[in-house]
Nucleic acid binder design. Structure first.
Lengths: 164, 164
DNA sequence: GACTTTAATATAACAAGTTATATAACTTCA
DNA sequence: TGAAGTTATATAACTTGTTATATTAAAGTC
């Protein structure tokens, strides 16, 4: 078994390491969401959906700030949401340079379902995986990687009794 | 200024968040390396170069383990290193399914320069950015993001007096 | 020793991010 | 008020990651 050099090199490869853990988390989250909701509710789109849900219609530029990603990336994501019938795009009536993005009824329905179900599940599973991590950033990342390898997110879901 | 929803959502979007910070770190690291070494020594390739440097020739499979990334990704990275004259690939004489990857002389020279220069600089800059982070994982990530925004890695390089 | 299974790598197609640049609409100011 | 500058978004091209599958070599098995 060859040694994990990215972990070994520590701060020198922190960027690579963070991306690596992030991709694993996203992949596991995607599995989790797909199991309980339509796969179109991808883990990658969730922040965009959540931003529109919480703030109402936003321009591409506002979404760029809300998500913290490059503008062309946001433009493409929004295009996909539109293609799936979850969002609408139209020019701002006052300043026609601005593209205003809003959720369709289907999009709002989806978010409602996600809020009640998959999103809560994801948050609980990730919280579980991160519970009690301690020490420096590198320490905590190491612990988190070990935990995700030992028990990935889908195995960290507890069946909840729905209040009635 | 629209609120940073990825930060706000906390554990639910931890994957997205880790990827985001990782990409920023890699981009800043790339700037740093390009400034003091040939741009072919990209931040993404560094782990592969380091693994080969420390362990000697490795198979694609061993590199996959060392880097913790998918096999096709490693195959492509290695292909690029080969195209740049930094690595060689050849079949293992005993088991001809195995592709053994090794550094060329040019590759070894590059690593020697990186070890003396750019890699140390990167490690020092990232260490500086992470110094004294405290609290939970989310806390530390928040602090790190703030610091990288306020003073990115290239501004965290201290000029060192070379011992002679 | 041919036949099947397993293992290692390569290839293809896709996903999601980036930078650089083009386009179109608004603003400024002489 | 029209030329020049600025801003918002779209588009193009690239990078780096992924999964699924094809290919080839080795290992078992009867």
């Amino acid at each position: 078994m060859t040694e994990d050099i990215v972990r070994r090199l520590g701060y020198m490869t922190l960027g690579t390491r963070l991306k690596r853990i992030g991709e694993r988390l996203q992949a596991q989250t995607q599995t989790l969401i797909s199991e309980r909701e339509s796969p179109e509710a991808g883990s990658v789109n969730s922040p965009v959906l959540a931003a529109l849900w919480r703030n109402g219609p936003l321009s591409i530029g506002e979404l760029t700030q809300a998500i913290g990603q490059s503008q062309p990336g946001i433009t493409r994501m929004v295009g996909k949401l539109k293609a799936r019938g979850l969002a609408e795009i139209g020019p701002d009536p006052v300043d026609r340079r601005i593209s205003k993005v809003s959720l369709t009824e289907a999009g709002k329905d989806l978010v409602r379902r996600l809020e009640e179900g998959a999103w809560q599940t994801v948050e609980a599973a990730v919280t579980d995986a991160c519970e009690g991590l301690s020490g420096s950033l590198l320490d905590q990342l190491g612990q988190l990687e070990d935990r995700l390898a030992a028990r990935p997110l889908p195995k960290r879901v507890r069946v909840r009794v729905k209040a009635r």
